[in-house]
Design a protein around this nucleic acid. Structure first.
Length: 786
DNA sequence: TTAGGTTTAG
């Protein structure tokens, strides 16, 4: 039978099937019966993500429902190889799916999923054929059921064709925040770029502000569904089509992959997380996304910049302009103009406006921005894009040297106003900073430098060694207010450098600094744990248990090879579960000098186990390696699954850098006098480049002379907690939380934060030579004061 | 329909 994969319209189904094929009823689907010249037809009710098996074979599983009314009316279809890849692209829930030339095998999940006792295996090797009929009532990319993830195909930007409706991923290179168009809708213009370096400008319309993408800065990553592609002025252009939907993600490498959705119901599957992470990594080295952001303390005349701020007051000025009074906690170094307005027109807390008058600036917005500005709520957090600072005109004698803030009419260069949600990371950081300012005597706002410095700046001398100071002070319980970090003895000869000097120096250099931790990210500490490949230097999220479970279920279809049982260096035990599923489990215990070892020293391989069973084994045995049989040897599963489990820790390998070898390569380790079963040794023997668990955090440090963001990239040294253990150990989680609460006590004003001492090094990243980054190194939180 | 990136000129 030829291998076929046809997408045909429903009415033509019966006539297009080869005439020798006869429809098979689900009740006759049994192993041992002849199903040649038979086909099975059902409706796709569930599809799983396409995965790669350990040998690189593509695997795709769907569930078909028979249209008969029998009690068990659904069956699992396991599709392998090229057909899996093709089906994953073409199949939608609700489609009618016809399969012929299948192999019938016992289903290992029947009891669990309540489906047919057999499953059907489909592949080129089996000489299978597949025919798919799309439901006429369902749009090709519409989910059939909200509970089931449909398969979306994402078109690279270089492959767009005029007149098509596509789904896209891209990095935002430019955007105009939604503004009120001259028609009936809000409009947002977004220019995307992807790894192909092709740009696409999309013009998006919607009557509902929330239905447009929630983009806050260039570098954000977006997913658009159902964008219509048209040619305009010789270039491809994207435009909203019916059912347009978007997700937006922070573009920062290592930040949590949390979508900001434009619709209440959306799908986002694990495979897509990878798309986002890959775009982030590509963007980090190929795009310069440093926007024209500025704090009020850094503005100059004749500047266009983006301001993240809080709205304190607003007032009508005249027909074409409107006043916004905003602050960001820092002080503008120039006298600022005050726009005269009638007192009755001014909205906002008058007392607060008076108290913060020297930190507040007046932004005059014009023309098309007036309507949106009027609707803003006092207290809300805003990003005002492309504000123009202007030196007061010389004609006006009263305004000899003051600076004016204008948001001119029009939307060029993304000019506009964006409303930021409370949970936006920049807003969280700003709120924390503003709280510090508010808690300080806000009448004394003439000198903001004293607010930022804090008056404890001179309380601590640098003469003693920080370590000594910690030891002395910990005895009195004062250490946390004074000095918290113990620096390592390697660099005791290094003297402290103030942040202003650090910020004004070229990279790369190393410094010892003394600063306060104003804020840190991520706030949810578990989000700071990532997996790092030291070879290709990529970071990725730690996979969740569900992904592992899906892979294990996929492998359950592969029967253990009897020829691989009990080889010279391992002893195998195989049994079939008696729970009705008839699942075959094989455990291969590695021997030492032909003897089985005590469980706590034993490495074992398991075939056909469930997640729960594997966890149970890790409690008893030293190492567990999930494997499956091939013709010649046992081999590892897909590298999305851990290649090794030891205690509570799942060890993963880098998909890009590993070249997995079969299990017999472990036998040389077993022959060692005392096998240590170190994960690195096991990885090396199996051709795996191991991923390391790492804490990745961003610390905002201040010392009164300046502020900088320093990255913490730490396996264990900083917190004295292995990053590999934190996700499964609640005691360590509490310890880390306590540490962070002590370093940066919530609700404490800047003056009362403890001083910290640490080492930082500055560096440049290729392609972004003018940008300097900072990383904490060789620093450990002093254990005796935690 | 609207806008279709590339600064107002108050």
């Amino acid at each position: 039978m030829p291998v076929q994969l046809l997408k045909i319209s429903k009415g033509k189904l019966e006539t297009q099937l080869p005439s020798h094929l006869q429809r098979e009823d689900l009740k006759y689907m049994q192993t041992g019966l002849d199903h040649t010249n038979k086909y099975f037809q059902g409706i796709v009710i569930l599809s799983y993500p396409l995965i790669k098996l350990g040998d690189g074979t593509d695997f795709f599983k769907i569930v078909l429902q028979d249209d008969t009314c029998t009690r068990i009316n659904s069956i699992n279809i396991l599709i392998y190889g090229k057909m899996a890849e093709d089906c994953a692209k073409l199949t939608r829930n609700g489609d009618t799916f016809v399969v012929a030339g299948f192999k019938v095998a016992e289903s290992s999940t029947a009891k669990e999923d309540g489906r047919h006792a057999c499953h059907l295996e489909v592949s080129e090797e089996n000489g299978s054929a597949i025919y798919i009929c799309t439901q006429p009532s369902t749009s090709p990319s519409e989910p059939a059921s909200a509970s089931v993830a449909p398969k979306y195909v994402y078109t690279p930007l270089k492959c767009l064709k005029d007149g098509t409706v596509v789904n896209l991923y891209g990095i935002v290179k430019f955007f105009k925040p939604p503004y009120i168009s001259k028609g009936t809708d809000y409009c947002s213009v977004v220019t995307l770029v992807d790894q192909s370096n092709v740009k696409l400008t999309c013009t998006l319309f919607n009557g509902n502000l929330d239905s447009l993408p929630k983009i806050y800065k260039n570098g954000d990553i977006v997913r658009f569904h159902r964008v219509k592609i048209r040619e305009y002025n010789g270039q491809m252009q994207g435009i909203t089509s019916a059912g347009f939907a978007s997700l937006t993600f922070d573009g920062t490498v290592g930040a949590p992959v949390v979508p900001r959705a434009s619709s209440k119901v959306y799908t986002f599957i694990d495979e897509e997380q990878k798309i986002v992470e890959e775009l982030r990594i590509w963007g980090a080295s190929n795009l310069s996304v440093s926007g024209p952001e500025a704090k009020l303390s850094n503005v100059k005349p004749m500047l266009f910049f983006d301001l993240t701020c809080q709205l304190l007051g607003k007032a009508k000025v005249d027909g074409s302009s409107f006043l916004l009074k905003v602050w960001d906690g820092t002080k503008c170094p120039y006298p600022t103009w005050k726009v005269p307005v009638e007192a009755k027109e001014l909205e906002g807390d008058k007392v607060l406006l008076h108290q913060l008058r020297s930190l507040t600036v007046d932004v005059l917005v014009y023309d098309n921005h007036v309507q949106l500005a009027k609707s803003l709520k006092i207290g809300s957090f805003l990003r005002i894009y492309s504000i123009h600072t202007k030196q007061a005109s010389a004609k006006n004698e009263d305004a000899s040297s003051h600076i004016e803030f204008h948001l001119h009419g029009g939307t060029c260069y993304g000019r506009g106003i964006g409303i930021l949600p409370e949970n936006n990371p920049d807003v969280e950081e700003l709120k924390k900073f503003l709280e510090c300012v508010e808690l300080t005597d806000s009448q004394n706002t003439e000198s903001v430098s004293s607010l930022e410095l804090g008056d404890t700046f001179d309380n601590c001398t640098d003469l003693e060694s920080p370590l000594q100071r910690c030891q002395q002070l910990s005895a009195t319980g004062m250490c946390i207010f004074f000095c918290y970090f113990a620096v390592l003895t390697d660099h005791q000869d290094m003297s402290n450098t103030v942040l202003k000097t650090v910020l004004n120096s070229r990279a790369p250099q190393q410094y010892r600094i003394r600063a306060k931790l104003r804020s840190f990210k991520p706030q949810k500490l578990y989000q700071s744990v990532k997996l790092h490949c030291s070879k290709c230097n990529t970071l990725q999220e730690v996979p969740d248990g569900d992904a592992f479970d899906v892979i294990l279920q996929g492998c359950a279809a592969t029967a253990p090879n009897p020829e691989l049982q009990s080889m010279s260096w391992y002893e195998s035990v195989m049994w079939t579960t008696q729970d009705g599923k008839q699942r075959k489990i094989t455990i291969h215990f590695v021997k030492h000098y032909e003897m089985l070892q005590r469980p706590e020293n034993t490495l074992l391989m398991i075939e056909g186990g469930t997640l729960k069973e594997i966890w149970k084994l890790t409690r008893r045995f030293k190492c567990v390696i999930p494997v499956k049989s091939t013709e010649d040897d046992l081999e590892l599963l897909d590298l999305s699954a851990p290649f090794l489990l030891q205690g509570n820790i799942k060890y993963y390998g880098c998909k890009q850098c590993s070249t997995p070898k079969t299990i017999k390569n472990l036998s040389s380790l077993a022959e060692k006098r005392e096998p240590s079963w170190e994960p690195t040794e096991i990885a090396q023997a199996l051709g795996i480049e191991p991923l390391q668990y790492v804490f990745v955090m961003k610390f905002t440090l201040v010392d009164g002379t300046g502020a900088l963001n320093a990255y913490l990239f730490d396996y264990e040294k900083f917190f004295q907690i292995p990053a590999s253990e934190i996700l499964t150990n609640s005691f360590l989680q509490e310890k880390m939380e306590m540490t962070m609460n002590t370093l940066s006590p919530p609700g404490r004003k800047l003056d009362d934060l403890p001083w910290l001492e640490c080492f930082i090094k500055s560096y440049n990243v290729a392609g972004m030579k003018h940008q300097v980054y900072y990383q904490i190194f060789d620093t450990t939180v002093a254990e005796d004061v935690v």
